[in-house]
């Protein structure tokens, strides 16, 4: 498979900040939450960004590819339709599950890092890939708890997933930081283990400490430590794209612009 296109620095497009996203300097690409869009009537703002030539990448949150249940092809089809409607070069979802036993967790849950879970994930990803018009990238999630009996490290788990499915990776450095804080993942080892040549792009987001737990809220400022993990990643590879995710408690345009500038500084600084 050919390499991924250069994306640059981007931001998650959200309805509340559509005009901000349009006005911000230095937005090279955007991501939309696929479940919130209908291919038939895209938001005016998204159409306008497309007309300007800004790549729009659909990001899904509900495929539950790490779930034991068979993939819901209706959701895959919707993602594909959105991808075609916005002319996306790639789509993404997470290495996680959100549905099990008839319940919906309402949030991205980590999968056990076992052979069983990997085999199921691989089967699900392959089925999704066959039903998608563009390549699929998969993202590491932030976990607040650790499954018992893990047989692989998170990096090894993702590396094998890529090897067996030929998927791309969407590395969320904030999730990596969260896992380092909350369940003791070693970010450097993670970065050593994953196939960086399959890196599609990177997510950066803010969060907050509650006692000794770090919550990846997407509603607070990006911590310098998270930019540190981004720097670590950039010291190994030049990421094709880096995207800021902000989902709530949106700060002023100036503050968002400065977060994007800080991200760009890390990326270009390392490029020297």
């Amino acid at each position: 498979m050919a390499g991924i296109a250069e994306l640059g620095v981007g931001i998650g497009w959200r309805p509340e900040i559509d005009l901000t996203v349009e006005r911000l300097p230095g937005v090279d690409f955007v991501e939309v939450v696929a479940e919130n869009l209908h291919a038939g009537h895209l938001p005016e703002s998204v159409v306008l960004l497309r007309e300007r030539g800004i790549p729009v990448l659909p990001h899904a949150v509900s495929l539950s590819l790490g779930g034991a249940e068979p993939v819901d092809l209706g959701r895959v089809e919707h993602l594909g339709e959105v991808a075609e409607a916005v002319g996306a070069p790639m789509v993404s979802d997470h290495v996680c599950f959100v549905r099990a036993g008839g319940l919906d967790s309402g949030h991205l849950m980590p999968v056990p890092r076992t052979r069983d879970a990997l085999d199921v994930l691989v089967a699900n990803v392959k089925l999704a890939q066959r039903n998608l018009p563009v390549p699929l990238a998969l993202e590491n999630v932030a976990a607040l708890l650790e499954w018992p009996d893990g047989e692989l490290s998170e990096g090894e788990f993702l590396a094998e997933l890529v090897e067996r499915t030929d998927c791309w990776l969407l590395v969320d450095v904030a999730n990596l930081y969260a896992n380092a804080r909350n369940i003791g993942t070693d970010p450097e080892r993670f970065l050593d283990e994953i196939p960086l040549e399959r890196l599609a792009y990177v997510h950066v987001a803010g969060g907050v400490d509650h006692g000794d737990v770090y919550h990846d809220t997407h509603a607070h400022a990006v911590l310098p430590e998270v930019l540190g993990v981004l720097g670590e990643l950039c010291s190994r590879v030049t990421p094709p794209g880096v995207l800021l995710e902000r989902d709530d408690n949106y700060p002023s345009d100036a503050e968002i612009a400065s977060e994007l500038a800080a991200i760009r500084a890390v990326v270009t600084g390392r490029q020297g």
């Binding site: 919130n36 990846d216 997407h218």
Partner: peptide, 12 residues
């Protein structure tokens, strides 16, 4: 995506 945790952020 509005308020309270759209996208993929945690519950805080």
């Amino acid at each position: 995506s509005c308020g309270g945790g759209g996208g993929c952020g945690g519950g805080g």
